[in-house]
Design a protein around this nucleic acid. Structure first.
Length: 277
DNA sequence: ATGGCACGCATTGCGTGA
């Protein structure tokens, strides 16, 4: 039997009743340059909340109307030309936090947080930190320390906390196609990994590794050198879940399909599904 | 053979990214 349009709508509604909230994180590498890719992906991926990084624009330039017409509320921490993060949510957002509250002197826009149905959700764009032995690397480590401090305060609330974003951290050599080629990169430094583990050890779980122990699963492939067709990638986009969030988490996956499209971002989305109530 | 790609911003070049 052929499904009529109305039947499809009905099935769609049933699927969402009492089901999971689907949260995705995607470094889009410019929201304006990537608008068509993002809209296309949203049209079939049933995303309730999208955390974006590297929107590369100020709030006034953000294509709000295009997302609002799809039913999303928008929270933005913008910046001219570089960085910038946002949260799109089909569920109501409250208690929006722009920037790390303990790092108001930070000149770069890398953090936005909202309360969504009692869950604290953050969109994070952690500094890259290259080259090593530079002030950029020092800034990365300092930023991670500030994130750690704030995350500890979030954990103290004993609610579900979902930290999602581009952490610019390769947690383990299993998370990079060629550890030797990347050994001098800021993303793979021991100091970077230690600081990341300090954050994790406050009580967070790397959601992807809770559900999948396959080595060589990536979220970023450089534009250069045919990295995507050769699968020369790194896993640097993560969801870190507090214990209360992990308790209600159904799964975590990487959707590689957007990376193969034309005009693609160099990152692809990572997703978690969290129980409604 | 040690660069190769793509973005924004300002202009065909530069800074940035990972």
């Amino acid at each position: 039997m052929l499904l009529q349009h109305a039947d499809v709508e009905l099935l769609f509604q049933f699927k969402n009743v009492g089901a999971a909230v689907k949260i995705a994180s995607w470094n889009v590498n410019s929201v304006r340059a990537r608008l068509q890719n993002i809209l296309e992906w949203l049209s079939y991926s049933e995303i309730d909340v999208l955390l974006m990084q590297e929107i590369k624009c100020i709030e006034e330039q953000f294509p709000k109307l295009e997302f609002e017409s799809l039913g999303y509320q928008v929270a933005i921490n913008g910046q001219k030309s570089y960085n910038g993060v946002a949260i799109l949510s089909k569920l109501p957002m409250s208690e929006i936090v722009i920037g790390l509250p303990n790092y108001m002197e930070d000149e770069q826009s890398r953090y936005v947080e909202a309360n969504i149905r009692g869950i604290v959700v953050s969109s994070i764009y952690l500094p890259n930190g290259n080259p090593i032995n530079s002030e950029k690397f020092d800034y990365k480590i300092a930023w991670m320390e500030k994130l750690k401090e704030h995350s500890k305060r979030l954990l103290d609330r004993e609610v579900a906390v979902v930290l999602g974003g581009d952490f610019n951290v390769v947690p383990d050599d299993d998370d990079v196609h060629d550890p030797l080629a990347w050994q001098n990169d800021a993303l793979c430094q021991l100091e970077t990994r230690k600081k990341y583990r300090e954050l994790i050890n406050l009580g967070f779980s790397d959601a992807f590794r809770v559900f999948n122990d396959t080595p060589g699963r990536f979220t970023f492939w450089d534009y250069q050198g045919g990295a995507w067709p050769k699968d020369h990638g790194v896993r640097i986009d993560h969801f870190l879940l507090s214990p209360h969030a992990l308790d209600i988490c159904y799964g975590c996956s990487i959707d590689t399909s957007p990376r193969g499209k034309s005009k693609a971002s160099d990152h692809t989305p990572i997703l978690v599904e969290i129980d409604h109530n």
